[in-house]
Amino acid sequence: MTEVDPKQIDALAAEASRLYAALTDNGRRAMEALRTIDPIVVEELVATFESDDAAAGWLISRTIGFGGSSALDLLAQGEREQVMHVLHHLRYGLCA
């Protein structure tokens, strides 16, 4: 086993923190853009996740349910109904 330089770990942790902050900011900007483009999607996101931050996080997270894509990816590809369908299931359950 090789020894790891603590400075390297610190640098990696700082980079991960910077990337996470940039991703979080991207999610917030996506929510703001969607408020203009498709406010109904934003309403459903916020109603489902009960906060803008949680909704923005889900919007940009890659999920198995979307084949490794994010809801934002699907919206960009014109797959609005698939995103709305998943949001409906998350909010009301699979039997609703």
Results as ranks from 00 to 15, higher is better:
L23P: 01
D53S: 12
L59K: 11
T63R: 13
D38N: 15
Q8R: 07
I60V: 15
L72A: 10
D73R: 04
A56M: 02
H85Q: 11
T63A: 04
L74S: 01
E32F: 10
A30L: 14
E3T: 12
M1L: 04
A71E: 02
L34Y: 12
L90P: 09
R62K: 14
M84E: 06
Q77N: 12
G68D: 06
A54T: 07
Y92A: 05
D52P: 00
H88F: 02
R29M: 02
S61G: 10
M31F: 08
L12V: 10
A11M: 10
R18N: 06
L45C: 15
L90F: 05
A22V: 00
F49L: 12
S51E: 15
R62V: 01
C95H: 10
N26Q: 13
R91F: 01
G65K: 13
L34V: 03
E32C: 00
T48D: 04
I60D: 09
A33R: 11
L34D: 00
L94Y: 07
A55T: 13
F66I: 06
I60C: 03
W58T: 01
Y92M: 05
T63K: 05
D25P: 00
V86R: 15
G57C: 09
G67N: 04
E50S: 09
V86S: 06
T63I: 10
F49M: 12
L19H: 04
D5P: 11
R80F: 01
F66P: 11
G78S: 05
S17F: 08
D38G: 09
T2V: 14
Q8V: 09
W58Q: 03
L87M: 01
L72I: 03
G57A: 07
I40N: 14
R35C: 13
E50M: 04
S69A: 12
I9E: 03
R91G: 09
V46D: 07
D25G: 14
S61F: 04
H88V: 00
C95S: 09
A47Y: 06
G67F: 09
Y20F: 06
G57Y: 07
